[in-house]
Design a protein around this nucleic acid. Structure first.
Lengths: 216, 216, 216, 216
DNA sequence: CATGAATGAGTGTTCATTCAT
DNA sequence: CATGAATGAACACTCATTCAT
């Protein structure tokens, strides 16, 4: 075998991965047990390192928490914005597509636990809540707002209050995420909600309600 | 009339209220900070008693938590059921009325913090989550399910998947409650959501989407 | 027996004593091992209480340290000032008397460990050093300064530089204290310094050196 | 000449100095913050090497501490002894000269921090205190003892208790050193002590007190 | 019953020491 | 030799819980 192809030294390779591994472990545990009930030692153990190592990368438990939120959150939003731009179809189709995308790219992902985390800990970490609102919620709302305004401007939708309709779009998505991270695991399989089906039906009801049809 | 007969002595009246005052204080704090981050001493202080006294009424912090959930929950549901029974109007009107009622009787109440609590702590207290599902969520769902089925049976609504449509009704309500107990306090007044307006608009969009109209 | 004469309840009596007992224990250990090398649990144990109890009275180890310094230091200085006022005798006799008093009232006391503590930790606790300078050193210096100035004004002493002569008086006292808390315990009994003898001889040499005698 | 022969490569020269640089850095920090409050990483950083390297030269923090004391100590004493031997002048002049020499060769030097260190840590490192007493204090005392005995034997001084008078000579010097390493840095410039002036005045007062003059 | 002083197990954080590279 | 990532024992501090008064 060619030595020049050999993997980088074990110690060094792992070092690069540490922060990510720790953030992953911390996300899982924070989501599952909340900030206060999660012990840093457990986070370290799940990441396969000792307690001391965690503090090599994050100066405190609180900083770890903030890093988890920031890391899990910033990316997905930007990607979403790009894809909306070149969507072809009616505004109604766009809305349903956006909702399903949100689910596949975020809601159905480990990162969606962040939403539950923020809900749970917002009053304990106000700056973090602000950050989340500015970096995640607002950009997301802007996307939905645009879609709704487009529909209204094109004569496809009624002239509803867009700022409120926004939440008619987002609330079911958040509900799915909250459910998944709280009651979901406690429910019998027979009662599990099927996310895509629910999103589709909700989107269709909503679009039908929004649509400016002749007889109304 | 002798006042000493009609008005119980202040001391005694307070004693009787102790558990209730403690539950009140605990609800506030658990909702605000979560279970783990709430100190029993703070609960006791807010209820105006000493730390020791709290343990006279609740054998442990966990028991206090369970009592908070159980106490905040039983009432509202039963009342709701009765009132729905004798509602006169279309199923669409019933749905909107139910949503607004839910908001006024629960969502706009301190007790709605329970919903946030359950979401936050469900994985730490699974048996409590089960209890809540059985005692609160299921009965609530039954009410909505009935209204939807009535609309379908009467030819007012499309034959949608009722189990999913359920959540189209509930999700916005839960969203309002979550928002109120997490991001809400961090938001500038200008961006506050107006609950009744939102509920009305959402209900109307939904009902319009559900309604079996001629041309569709 | 008359119950009205009975001792106060055990729990309560001890409570009053706690801070003092803790300060005593802390003084011993801080002097012996230094601030950093002293464990709070050891302080608590020596005071006969648990670790938690210490934090009931002092919010942190640092606060305990400051309290030790303040408590051990403020009193002796004030007492000293009063007694100097009504001393009858020559300024030379006054100086020797003051030095011996200082030794008996402070140097030969557990509290003198504070001097070593301050020397050791001054750079780690600058505010404390300032406090000590203002509250202890300066008042002490003022006493000595007055005695020297009196001697000079009355034609008993040479017109030496009083600010420097001050330290000729104090240095041997500080030396005794430092020695006692550092090398002293390591020395064979045969080499122990006899404080009173040393102070007397030093005072007499100094006074003789200061005294304005005819032939010089 | 070939420069590669005359000037050793920089890397190699530094290697040779490593232990010395580490001892220097350690002396500074131990004196400033005490043994326990000094972190080895800081010592290493100040010496310009990594933490691991320090442990290449000193097996433990304690060993580093002992090495610091031992290294800072041997030189000055021996030199002093020699110079005293061939001093010409009265015993009084000798005493003052010795005190000033001590100050210039040791007290005014970084090495004088050792005195503070020993005072502070003697009870934590008894064997080190013993070593210091035997190697430094005793030889120093011997020098002073000889000067005093010479003065008495020659009829220049009173027959005072030499073992005590010893400390009348040394105490002011130690005081200067202690002050410099503790309260000194906290004091306003206006209150700074001028060491040489103080030493001279103290020496003169002392010698005058010791001197066997006619009328007394 | 009510209190609040006392407890001690538990947690976040530090830091001397090791060792693979 | 030199490095610095990793370790884990040790420590300051918290807080649910107990119990003498």
């Amino acid at each position: 075998m060619n030595p020049s192809v050999s993997v980088p030294p074990k110690r060094e390779r792992r070092k690069q991965d540490r922060p990510g591994e720790l953030l992953d472990a911390a996300l899982d545990l924070f989501v599952e047990k909340g900030f206060a009930a999660t012990r840093v030692e457990e986070v370290a153990a799940r990441a396969g390192v000792s307690k001391g190592t965690l503090f090599l990368y994050f100066p405190s438990k609180e900083d770890l928490f903030k890093a988890v939120v920031r890391a899990s959150v910033v990316e997905p939003v930007h990607q979403g914005a790009l894809e909306v731009a070149n969507f072809k179809g009616t505004s109604g189709e766009l809305l349903e597509w956006m909702m399903l995308q949100w689910w596949h790219r975020y809601g159905d992902t480990k990162a969606s636990g962040i939403s539950k985390l923020i809900i749970s800990e917002a009053s304990n970490f106000p700056e973090l809540a602000q950050f989340y609102r500015a970096e995640v919620i607002e950009p997301g709302h802007a996307l939905v707002r645009n879609a709704l305004n487009r529909g209204i401007a094109q004569g496809e939708f009624h002239a509803v209050d867009v700022e409120l309709a926004l939440h008619s779009v987002m609330a079911p998505l958040l509900f799915l995420v909250m459910w998944k991270h709280s009651m979901g695991p406690c429910c019998p399989v027979s009662e599990q909600i099927q996310p895509e089906k629910f999103i589709s039906q909700h989107a269709q009801l909503l679009v039908r309600g929004l649509t400016l049809s002749a007889p109304l």
